[in-house]
């Protein structure tokens, strides 16, 4: 009967939806397993030395990841520090102080344009404009004038994550209930006081989560960093010295890694990057969803 055929289509459609949804989870699991299995040779041959070793020497078969872990942590935290005043200002600018004025649409466009520039173009610009500029600053300061290095990478990285963390913080600030703000204003508070004592404390967990997610981004960013960080496999000697991040060393050495353990070591770096970003994203998203639910039930 025609209704039987319909029933069949109905069930097929619902099953298709479910299959696709489950497929996404399988994809994520598959990514993890792939990274794990393919890094086994390195895990077996290097063992704990991989995470404690300070030497990365493919010729001698020594793979210690400390230089890259340090490189990743320093670049991304410095970048985060530089970016916070900018991203927070923009979030407040767009979400509170100059909400829906023509000026805020200009700022919004600037942020969108920055977000639209591809990583490789940031790197290109960094290599040809920023690096010579940093070098010219380093000479009078008495620092070895590499130009390329951790600091240049952090500068570019900061610029790249500002749009992301600004938009995250703005969404959170926009969720602060307006009756709270109005209550404070009606008590005679100034804008600064409302911001300082109402908005920021209220939104703090959400802003923290947004910053965490931005950190996750910064740690995984590859191209721009690779192009300006100097690609040295030693522990960075200073903030201005050359180095490498976990992501940038993968980009540099992956196609040249003919040795099995070398390739597996690079994949193991990828595995750690994966695990770190999964944790950061899960925690960040969890905080944000909790924050959103709280504001909605009030």
């Amino acid at each position: 009967m025609w209704t039987d055929r319909l029933q069949f289509f109905e069930i097929m459609f619902k099953k298709t939806l479910q299959v696709f949804a489950v497929l996404v989870c399988v994809l994520l699991g598959g990514i993890f397993l792939t990274l794990l299995v393919k890094s086994l040779p390195a895990i077996v041959s290097q063992g704990i030395r991989f995470v404690t070793g300070k030497e990365w020497d493919p010729v001698m078969g020594n793979f210690g990841a400390i230089p890259f872990v340090e490189g990743t942590l320093i670049t991304s935290f410095v970048a985060l520090l530089i970016s916070i005043p900018f991203s927070l200002s923009i979030a407040i600018f767009l979400g509170e102080y100059f909400k829906q004025t023509w000026f805020s649409s200009v700022i919004k466009s600037i942020v969108e344009l920055l977000a639209g520039i591809p990583s490789v173009v940031y790197g290109f610009f960094g290599l040809f404009v920023l690096v010579p500029f940093v070098r010219s600053l380093e000479t009078p300061l008495g620092i070895t004038p590499y130009g390329v290095g951790i600091f240049s990478a952090a500068l570019i990285l900061a610029l790249m994550i500002v749009p992301y963390s600004a938009s995250m913080s703005r969404e959170v600030i926009a969720l602060v209930p307006s009756d709270l703000k109005e209550a404070a204003y009606s008590l005679g508070a100034t804008r600064y006081e409302v911001l300082r004592y109402i908005i920021l404390p209220y939104a703090s967990s959400g802003i923290f989560a947004g910053t965490l997610l931005a950190l996750g981004r910064a740690m995984g960013e590859t191209m721009a960093v690779t192009m300006v960080i100097g690609n040295s496999n030693l522990i960075p000697e200073s903030l201005f010295g050359p180095g490498n991040t976990m992501a940038s060393v993968i980009a540099n050495e992956f196609t040249e890694a003919t040795d099995k353990v070398h390739l597996a070591s690079l994949i193991e770096l990828g595995l750690y990057l994966f695990v770190i970003t999964v944790v950061i994203n899960s925690v960040g998203r969890y905080i944000i969803s909790k924050f959103t639910i709280e504001t909605q039930t009030q």
Binding site: V24, I31, G216, A247
Partner: peptide
Amino acid sequence: VEVLQGIPSIV
């Protein structure tokens, strides 16, 4: 899906 969105492109 959200975690997938956060995975670094190099990975």
